[in-house]
Simulated assay, not measured.
Amino acid sequence: MDQNRPEPDLIIFDCDGVLVDSELLSCRCLSEVLAEFGIALSEGQALELFLGRSTKAIEQHYRDLGQAVPDGFLPRLKSHVLNSFAGSLQPISGVADVISALRAPFCVASSSDIDRVSLSLDVTGLRSHFGNRLFTAQMVKHGKPAPDLFLYAAARMQADPSRALVIEDSVSGVQAAKAAGMTVWGFVGGSHYGARDGQALLSAAGADRVFARMSDFWEA
């Protein structure tokens, strides 16, 4: 598949930071909820450590530090994120136009849980484009940067992984897509890349191309 002008059999979109501008909101919620449980983590540190990762990765990180998060942490985080999204979440500019014009089959593969993905797409008016073609880290044993989720999505969509194109905003997501044998384009148009060199980060992770505006989706 030509990496600049592909004719993919399947396009797989990450959700957070690609379809919806959620990453700064998510990191703010994570920082605030951890603080409620006596754990200090800045929004910037949350971005560096957990961008594109699942809540399992957060729990594992603190277990590895010998600082297990309390039992009530995950329900509290989920509640805080969903409330924040319901009031503030916006779609990535131009993404609805891109999706509406696609001819290839497409789906979502996200590290977030299905409730959060569903709410994100409902709040931003994107849900009707995807129907039930939503795949999440809950559905596989290993989340990103392992390839499991993308391979699962391709299998469910009956597509050859080598003929799939992934749109990702995180290093772990890019790594997962490459490990799955897929072409991956890095997207750095989310607000979380306002003060970070996303081009360098995602290129170093293996992205075949990096772009910053959805209006440039098909531009070489």
Rank of each mutant, 00 (worst) to 15 (best):
R127N: 07
V20H: 01
Q175I: 09
S111I: 11
R213C: 07
D148A: 09
E48G: 10
F50N: 06
D169C: 12
A204V: 00
W185A: 07
S31W: 08
K141Q: 14
R163E: 11
L30P: 00
V20W: 02
D21K: 11
A155G: 11
L119W: 04
W185N: 08
N83D: 13
G194M: 10
F13R: 00
V20K: 04
A176N: 10
A68I: 00
M157R: 00
S215P: 00
D197W: 10
G38Q: 04
L165V: 02
S191R: 15
V95H: 02
T55L: 09
V95M: 06
L10A: 03
H129Y: 15
V166A: 10
H129C: 10
P75C: 04
H192P: 07
K78E: 07
A179R: 08
A205Y: 13
A155L: 09
T124H: 01
S162E: 09
L134T: 01
I114K: 11
K144L: 15
G38I: 03
F135T: 01
E32G: 02
G194Q: 13
H142G: 12
P8D: 13
T124W: 03
S162Q: 10
R209E: 13
I12N: 06
W218S: 14
L10G: 01
G131K: 00
Q45M: 09
A137I: 03
L202A: 03
D197A: 05
N83W: 05
A205R: 06
G66L: 05
C15W: 01
R28V: 06
Q138E: 14
S128Y: 13
L82C: 07
V171D: 04
I92W: 04
M214W: 15
G131M: 04
K141M: 13
S215A: 14
A220H: 15
A207K: 05
R133M: 01
R28W: 01
L41Y: 11
A154S: 09
L25N: 08
L51S: 11
E168W: 11
M1E: 12
V123P: 02
D16P: 05
H142A: 14
F211M: 12
A153I: 00
E43V: 13
S54L: 13
V171G: 05
V108S: 01
Q90E: 15
L47R: 07
I114S: 10
D21C: 12
H129K: 05
V95E: 08
S111Q: 04
D64A: 15
S111W: 12
S22Y: 02
S26R: 08
G194W: 08
R209V: 06
S84V: 09
F130D: 03
L34W: 00
